[in-house]
Amino acid sequence: MVGTLPPEIGNLKAATLIDLSMNRFSDGIPREIGGLQTLVHLSLRHNKFQGSIPDSMSNMKLKYFNVSVNKLYGEIPSGGSFKKLSSEFFIYNEALCGSSRFNVPPCPTSSKHRSNRKKLLLSFFLLGITLLFGPATVVFVWIRYRRGNRAPEQEDSFSAITRERISYYELLQATVALSETNLIGSGSFGSVYKGILRSGTAIGVKVFNFATGYSIQEF
């Protein structure tokens, strides 16, 4: 037999044994098959099934489930009846992964976990910069903001520059840790960086260079 295994197979509610091995079924295993609660023997070996094994099959009462020699990939369910299945039932597939008892490689870490790890490393990086350079750096911040009530002809003008107290950690976040991409200019007195606070306010940050006498005189 060839073709796709139809989802209507889930209507065989009284079936206890289904053997479709040694055929040429393709595409995925329909998730509706997970509703066959009386099924204890299911053989799909030696076909061309693709995709992953449906999670819905974890709730079945299978004692025999063989999908060897197919083109399946993804994680092998580890709960329910899969706890007692042999690793031989999953051999010769495309790229199955999961528990080591199935003799398959572990599944790769999800993108969400990788993202959380990157955020944690970035936090430690910023904290290290703060502890290392914070005490030796004097920063003046000039904040520009638009007037709340302006005449139509003055919509493009900025209000007077004011000064606010902002933590050094906030400055590092606003300027991407004083990166070169945010550098506006530099000279003998120090460097000026552009940045944007969490509130959306654009700022300019001047970092004095105390290695020269000029910056001390200006300070």
Rank of each mutant, 00 (worst) to 15 (best):
S179M: 14
T201L: 11
K118S: 05
N149D: 01
L132M: 15
I53D: 05
E180G: 06
L127N: 01
G204E: 14
P106T: 05
I203V: 09
S123E: 05
C107N: 07
N70I: 05
R117K: 14
L127E: 04
E164F: 05
K48V: 00
C107Q: 08
S43Q: 06
V141K: 00
K118E: 08
C107D: 08
S186G: 02
S123I: 03
I216H: 10
S110C: 15
T137N: 03
L171Q: 11
K83E: 05
Y214E: 13
S110F: 14
I184W: 01
L12E: 07
S167L: 12
K194V: 00
E32A: 06
G128Q: 13
E153C: 07
L85E: 07
G128A: 13
P108H: 10
R144K: 11
T212R: 06
G51K: 08
T109F: 12
L171M: 14
K48F: 04
G200S: 07
A174C: 14
N59W: 04
E180D: 15
R24I: 09
G195Q: 01
G80W: 07
E153Q: 11
N93K: 01
S21N: 12
A15Q: 03
I29V: 10
P77Q: 02
N23P: 03
L62D: 03
S86V: 02
D27K: 14
P106G: 02
S21C: 06
Q37E: 08
S110V: 15
G148K: 12
K13F: 01
F90A: 03
L183S: 09
L126P: 01
V104Q: 13
S188C: 02
N116Q: 15
K48R: 10
S186W: 13
Q173M: 15
R31K: 09
N11K: 08
G79N: 03
S191V: 00
A15S: 06
G134M: 02
I9H: 10
E94M: 09
S199A: 09
L85S: 06
L183H: 10
K63V: 06
P105D: 12
T109G: 07
G185E: 04
I166W: 07
E8A: 06
I184R: 00
V141T: 02
F89M: 07
V69G: 00
V104S: 13
R114F: 14
E8M: 03
P30T: 08
Y92T: 02
E32K: 06
A160G: 13
E155Y: 06
